[in-house]
Computed example of a mutant assay.
Amino acid sequence: MITLNAISSSPMLLALEPYHALCNYIAGHMQPTDFSENGDGHPVLVIPGLGSSGAATADLRMRLQQLGYATYDWKQGVNTGHGFDLDRWLLLLTEQVEAISDQHTASVSVIGWSLGGIYARELAMRCPHLIRQVITLATPFNAADLSQYQDGHHRVSSTSIYSQTDGIVKWEMCKAPESGAHRNIEVQGVSHFGMVHHPVILNVLAQLLKQPATTSDYDVQG
């Protein structure tokens, strides 16, 4: 769960979050999709943040679909937090990843926004053989996750995307030690809710998703 110490301590950024989010949304719809970034069409599962559902990530999934990827919503409705039954949710998500992987005969990239990114990391630990890569958007690391990354025990390529203008989550907590399998990418001028709309996010995602499944060499522009 996203704990209180992960919440942004900046009253100004929190107050400006709705304005920044609206600007990010408009920017995302003003910039056309760059089809030169078309990828290999592998499946991508998108998990929404706390208090949101697949409706909030529909635009992101549509844009990734335009780039040729087979995109999927998590199908669990509103993300109300996992305090009541985390294991059941993770079991359902694991079963969904298995079904998607079987359908496409390919590993699945998982994009998790905010709290959804914590679920994405959990999935990578439960079924690493089915996960191509994990990409998190404004997702803090909890103590257990950070320990895995500090010790180098995570087995799936991962990228944490964060912004210092996030009005909800402390950007400092979205970073983990970098390695051949993990990269932190800072994006400029993106709000917490703008993470699923801002054109720079789509550009970074397009570059990450295009990379070969076995690559550990990142060359991505934030």
Rank of each mutant, 00 (worst) to 15 (best):
Met1Cys: 03
Met1Leu: 03
Thr3Met: 03
Ala6Glu: 09
Pro11Lys: 00
Pro11Thr: 00
Pro11Cys: 00
Leu13His: 08
Glu17Gln: 07
Tyr19Thr: 11
Tyr19Met: 08
Tyr19Arg: 10
Leu22Trp: 05
Leu22Arg: 09
Leu22Thr: 06
Ile26Glu: 03
His29Cys: 07
Met30Ser: 05
Met30Asn: 05
Asp34His: 09
Phe35Met: 05
Asn38Leu: 01
Asp40Ala: 08
His42Thr: 11
Pro43Ser: 06
Val44Lys: 05
Gly49Pro: 01
Leu50Ile: 13
Gly51His: 01
Gly54Phe: 06
Thr57Cys: 03
Leu60Met: 14
Arg61Cys: 15
Arg63Cys: 03
Leu64Val: 04
Leu64His: 09
Leu64Ala: 04
Gln65Phe: 01
Thr71Ser: 02
Tyr72Asn: 08
Asp73Asn: 14
Lys75Trp: 04
Lys75Ala: 11
Asn79Tyr: 04
Asn79Arg: 09
Asn79His: 14
Gly81Met: 05
His82Lys: 09
His82Met: 07
Phe84Lys: 10
Asp85Lys: 08
Leu86Tyr: 07
Asp87Asn: 13
Arg88Ser: 12
Trp89Gly: 13
Leu92Gly: 01
Gln96Arg: 12
Val97Asp: 11
Asp102Asn: 14
Gln103Arg: 12
Gln103Asp: 09
His104Arg: 13
Thr105Leu: 04
Ala106Tyr: 02
Ser109Lys: 04
Ile111Tyr: 02
Ile118Tyr: 01
Tyr119Asp: 13
Arg121Cys: 05
Leu123Met: 11
Met125Lys: 14
Arg126Thr: 01
Cys127Asp: 05
Gln133Leu: 07
Gln133Glu: 10
Thr139Trp: 02
Thr139Phe: 00
Phe141Ala: 13
Ala144Ile: 10
Asp145Phe: 05
Gln148Asp: 07
Gln150Asp: 11
Asp151Tyr: 03
Gly152Lys: 03
Gly152Tyr: 02
Val156Phe: 02
Val156Tyr: 02
Thr159Arg: 07
Tyr162Ser: 13
Tyr162Asp: 07
Ser163Asn: 09
Asp166Pro: 12
Gly167Glu: 07
Ile168Trp: 01
Lys170Glu: 13
Lys170Ala: 06
Trp171Phe: 14
Glu172Asp: 10
Glu172Trp: 01
Met173Cys: 12
Cys174Gln: 12
Lys175Arg: 15
Lys175Asn: 13
Pro177His: 06
Glu178Lys: 05
Ser179Ile: 04
Ser179Pro: 12
Gly180Ala: 12
Ala181Glu: 05
His182Ala: 08
Arg183Asp: 01
Asn184Cys: 15
Glu186Thr: 06
Gln188Ala: 15
Val196Ser: 14
His197Met: 14
Pro199Leu: 08
Val200Gly: 03
Ile201Pro: 15
Ile201Arg: 15
Leu202Arg: 15
Gln207Met: 13
Pro212Lys: 08
Pro212Phe: 04
Thr214Ile: 00
Thr214Tyr: 06
Ser216Cys: 11
Asp217Trp: 09
Asp219Lys: 10
Gly222Met: 06
